[in-house]
Design a protein around this nucleic acid. Structure first.
Length: 414
DNA sequence: CAAGGTAAAGTCCGATTGAC
DNA sequence: GTCAATCGGACTTTACCTTG
């Protein structure tokens, strides 16, 4: 590649009538080169090698995946191979996405700097902690919901991290705040995630949560595990509760713990001068967030579509919300799936629906289908046989109710 | 065509960071 | 604290271009 002034020298000499051979000799370059530049009529910039870029045309795809995978280039490399059949080394992907990193980092900073809009987001976290209750160390699962704008907390204590407790906690938060936010951000939501792909880092919520979210009208979001905990969050809700409300305290009973959490939220957490907002959460909530939440007036609780697993008790029934619902007596001791929806309690054993009852509103009631006791006439003879020392059927029911009650039921039903 | 130049791709390695 | 994942700098190889 010649410099522009060398090329202009060629052209000048050519204009003077010099032959290409002479010019080449004079300038110490090849005749081919002289002829080429004369033909071209001047200096041409060096034509870049037309080497194909391995990731040519993938710019927007890369950008999107980079965002999706929170900056993990190796994941993108794997997806490139799997989805597009483009096999390149990690470094190549690194270089390709590098320019997008800055953009994403700037966005991340921006989302930290700019506060969440009122009513926009509720952040949920479950944390466990040993708490002294009644003199014993008890494992307590703390459910903490924090409104993004006002930073107002709602705290509940549970004995486990089961799905129904997530729902219970959320519903109680909606009740307390008097509304539903646009989205709910789940941190560490093991009980609610069906699929958590470690490679692609995608999260699939289970159907139940989807239904719950639809029922209440919020959008569920999983907090990405990638560095989300440390970046941007100045205060972790559960950590704050653990340090400030629980640490160093002992409680005489579970009820006392719950009462304390409630009072602490009201008298301490709601009133504190928040480090970032510089305002007590309760004031900020009343000023702007309360009216920004979607009202819940007239919405029934989600239990309209609940599902629980129960073991059939020895009295031929399963207990749901303090009431007992009968099932066929042969299922005593078996695990059954109970679906509570549309005013009905539907009980499944395996794939078979074995009982349907209307939901009982009260407490300590028994809802009985006499059919479930059909065949119990053999019960007395079994029992008599057992008493006589003969073999007993494996599922021979050990009924807790007085025999007379069953007889009355069976007699009344037939 | 061979030699040499350029830019992209690939390789290696140390530093950093998060999980434990 | 260790360990592993990840990133980016420095270097090497490869692909494509120009020149002699």
């Amino acid at each position: 590649m010649l410099e522009p002034d060398e090329v202009s020298a060629i052209l000048r000499l050519n204009e003077l009538g010099w032959g290409s051979k002479r010019i080449a000799r004079e300038l110490g370059i090849s005749r081919n080169t002289v002829k080429e530049y004369i033909a071209a009529g001047g200096w041409t910039p060096y034509r870049q090698p037309q080497r194909k870029k391995a990731l040519e045309g993938q710019e927007s795809w890369l950008k999107e995946r980079l965002r999706q995978h929170r900056g993990n280039a190796d994941v993108i490399r794997q997806e490139l191979a799997a989805e597009k059949g483009i096999v390149v080394c990690l470094r190549t992907v690194e270089r390709a996405v590098q320019r997008y990193r800055q953009e994403l980092a700037a966005e991340a900073r921006a989302t930290v700097r700019f506060e969440t809009a009122p009513g926009k987001q509720l952040q949920i976290d479950f944390g466990e902690r040993l708490v002294e209750i009644g003199g014993a160390k008890v494992r307590v699962y703390l459910f903490v919901a924090t409104l993004g704008y006002s930073r107002r907390h709602h705290v509940r204590a549970f004995r486990n991290e089961r799905q129904e407790n997530w729902f219970d906690g959320l519903e109680s938060a909606f009740m307390k705040f008097g509304g539903v936010p646009e989205e709910v951000l789940f941190d560490n939501a093991r009980a609610l995630v069906v699929e958590h792909d470690a490679i692609t880092r995608t999260v699939v919520f289970n159907d139940k949560l989807s239904a719950f979210a639809k029922h209440w009208g919020f959008r569920p979001r999983a907090c990405a595990p990638y560095r989300a905990r440390t970046k941007g969050k100045t205060e972790n809700g559960v950590g704050y509760v653990k340090r400030n409300a629980i640490a160093g305290r002992a409680f005489p009973s579970w009820d006392a713990l719950e009462a304390h959490l409630e009072a602490w939220t009201r008298e301490v957490a709601d009133l504190r001068q928040h480090g970032t907002t510089g305002e007590p959460p309760i004031e900020r909530f009343r000023r702007a967030e309360a009216q920004a939440l979607k009202p819940i007036v007239g919405r029934p609780p989600f239990q309209a579509a609940r599902e629980v697993i129960r073991r059939v008790q020895a009295d031929c029934a399963v207990e749901i919300d303090g009431n007992a619902y009968s099932v066929p007596w042969r299922l005593i001791g078996e695990m059954v799936r109970v679906m509570i929806a549309d005013g009905l309690v539907r009980i499944h054993h395996g794939i078979h629906e074995v009982a349907v009852h209307p939901i009982c509103a009260g407490r300590r009631r028994r809802v009985v289908d006499p059919e479930h006791f059909a065949g119990l006439t053999g019960f007395r003879s079994n029992r008599a046989a057992a008493l006589a020392g003969s073999s007993v059927a494996p599922h021979s029911p050990a009924l807790l109710r007085p025999l007379g009650e069953y007889e009355a039921i069976v007699g009344g039903g037939f």
